[in-house]
Amino acid sequence: MGECHYQSGNYEALVMAETVRRILDTVGINRERFTIDWASAAEGPRFVKLLTEFTEKIKTMGPLGEAEGLDWETLKFRLEAARNLCKNMQFRAQYGNLAKEIKKLGDYSPENISQAIEKKLVPQIRKRIFEAELKELIAQGPQAVEVLREKTGATEEEIGAILETLKKKEKK
């Protein structure tokens, strides 16, 4: 850390990493499937060690979705919503602003990053992903709450709140 060719590049990557972990949590993918680590140009053996360990970990975890107890169809459905979230300009601006803010304050400790993201980004991530999923599901016809919960992974309260806002929007 701090030895980056571009001075602060790898610090900025930490914000990205935490954001990704939160998205994975929301989608229901084990966050351990994603890792970020450091090895300088001279540390070939360290790189080998990191990659070997990571490969072993994924091997014991099993294929994507299986360890999570999700079939591919559900996972694909959720990942599609996550993909749209990442492309969403409003969300990207929020993410960029947060990254800028953290950079300005210069506190890249994991606790600080995690806290800032928890406060500013996580509600957005969950709301936007679940809303997109629910819209999609409801367009297919009326659904039981159980089904909605199973497909999205959201809590009942979250589903309720989102449906409420969707209803309001429709009236307008």
Partner: peptide, 14 residues
């Protein structure tokens, strides 16, 4: 997200 969407089992950033 794109990587998982095309069914990668793990993503390593170094």
């Amino acid at each position: 997200v794109e990587a998982f969407y095309v069914r990668a089992d793990g993503v390593f950033v170094g």
